[in-house]
């Protein structure tokens, strides 16, 4: 594994008796768009705050390009907090310039970058307005600009898609993809799993502070049981060895196969009963994978 991007090793964070994050290890490579999914309170925000250095972990380390992350790198990290925050009564351009300068840009570079981004989002004519006078969607664009305006080395975004209209979702997706394509590690959390599935190179599922699954969506699928959708005359799979009926959906049946079972044997058994209208590998959506992952280990842990 190359040590180009962001690395979290054995991160643990406790709040009194509550362990918010437990022994979490993951890597995000440069140019990789990493989606962080999990229920509310699973530890996503805590993890992101630890990456930002806003929280200090009790154990473990955040590393950047192979070395412990320094304050200087953190200053070059673009961050979008879960509940957005900017100064409501400050003028848009002034506010963004201020934040860009705080992140280390010179006044001239900051002003140039701010006007470039506002131009791109069609907000150039709102630059002198107070933030609170902008529509919700435009405020979100300003918030995104605040995270990217200073040319960050790393982007960390907590729920960037929450509350966005479809158009704004597209803008946000484009910017995230584009930033990743310029070589940045981009890490974001979301509950919109279809979006994560479509957008992300890799996904991490976090549950009660544990990272219970991590990989590309295809890798996550491969890790699960093999399942087949088969449409054939009723009653045929009963008694087939290594095959379990998950559920029936009209004439279609969802079957789960033991690892040793050959799917061609199943197909022949079905054909022996009658015409087979459908026979395909089930490709669970991220949502289904998530549900399964979240319910599985959770039950194990409580057993």
């Amino acid at each position: 594994m190359t040590v180009g991007g962001l690395e979290l090793t054995g991160i643990t964070k406790r709040y009194g008796d509550l362990t918010a994050v437990r022994d979490l290890t993951l890597q995000v490579q440069q140019g990789e768009l990493f989606g962080f999914v999990g229920s509310n309170g699973a530890g996503k925000t805590t993890t992101m705050r630890i990456v930002l250095g806003v929280l200090t972990p009790d154990e473990g380390q955040v590393r950047w390009r192979g070395a412990p992350m320094t304050f200087e790198t953190r200053r070059r990290t673009g961050y979008m907090p879960e509940e957005r925050g900017l100064y409501p009564k400050m003028r848009v351009a002034e506010q963004l310039t201020y934040l860009a300068q705080l992140h280390g840009m010179s006044a001239a570079d900051a002003a140039r970058s701010v006007s470039g981004w506002l131009e791109r989002f069609g907000l150039a004519d709102r630059a002198a307005d107070q933030l609170l006078n902008l529509s919700h969607g435009n405020q979100q664009r300003v918030q995104l600009t605040a995270a990217v305006v200073f040319d960050p080395l790393l982007l960390v975004l907590d729920e960037p898609f929450a509350g966005l209209d479809p158009e704004a979702v597209d803008v946000m997706s484009d910017v995230l993809r584009e930033r990743a394509d310029t070589g940045l590690p981009v890490i974001f959390s979301s509950h919109q799993l279809d979006l994560v599935e479509r957008l992300c190179d890799r996904v991490g599922i976090i549950q009660r502070g544990h990272l219970i699954a991590c990989g590309t969506v295809d890798e996550l699928r491969a890790g699960g049981p093999r399942r087949l959708w088969v449409e054939a005359p009723a009653g045929w799979p009963d008694g087939l060895p290594g095959v379990r009926l998950v559920r029936a959906d009209g004439p279609r049946a969802l079957l789960e196969l033991d690892p040793s079972t050959d799917d061609q044997v199943v197909l022949r058994a079905a054909l022996a009963v009658g015409p087979v209208r459908e026979f395909r590998r089930d490709r669970p959506s991220l949502l289904e994978l998530f549900r399964e992952a979240v319910s599985g280990p959770g039950l194990d842990a409580s057993a």
């Binding site: 705050r49 990290t77 879960e82 934040l99």
Partner: peptide, 14 residues
């Protein structure tokens, strides 16, 4: 103000 509107999180990262 900074705490209520969460900008403090952005500020304290830098």
């Amino acid at each position: 103000e900074e705490k209520a509107n969460r900008i403090v999180e952005i500020l304290l990262s830098t």
